[in-house]
């Protein structure tokens, strides 16, 4: 299998929106390679025409009656926010100029 290089590691970090210091990248590349090497053990198992399992319980389309229930108030939803303004989350600008 292809070895995961530092560039790939950087792009994965960017994909998951986690800032990683440049000097940490080689360590994460190494760990990523260790993990991927370990999972390659299953490549020798024949899975042709085997369906996937995404959940084990087997229930589907669990619905409740469409009745309005009391949920979080605006105030409760904001209790753990770093910055709020006028009852909203305050964030940095979304787009660059």
């Amino acid at each position: 299998m292809t070895k995961i290089d530092n560039e790939t590691t950087k792009s994965v970090a960017d994909l998951i929106k986690i800032h990683i210091d440049e000097e940490q990248i080689p360590l994460y590349s190494e760990n990523l390679n260790t993990a991927i090497d370990a999972v390659n053990t299953f490549s020798d198992l024949d899975t042709k025409d085997v369906p996937i399992t995404s959940q084990t319980v087997g229930t589907e389309n669990i619905m409740r009656d469409d009745i309005v229930e009391e949920g979080f108030s605006q105030e409760e939803a904001l209790t753990n926010a770093h910055q709020t303004k006028n009852g909203y989350f305050l964030v940095r600008k979304v787009f660059n100029d």
């Binding site: 986690i18 800032h19 990683i20 940095r92 979304v94 660059n96």
Partner: peptide
């Protein structure tokens, strides 16, 4: 500067 950069820093 931006929201996404802030999130990446918070998470990192």
């Amino acid at each position: 500067e931006t929201l996404l950069d802030q999130i990446a820093l918070n998470r990192g």
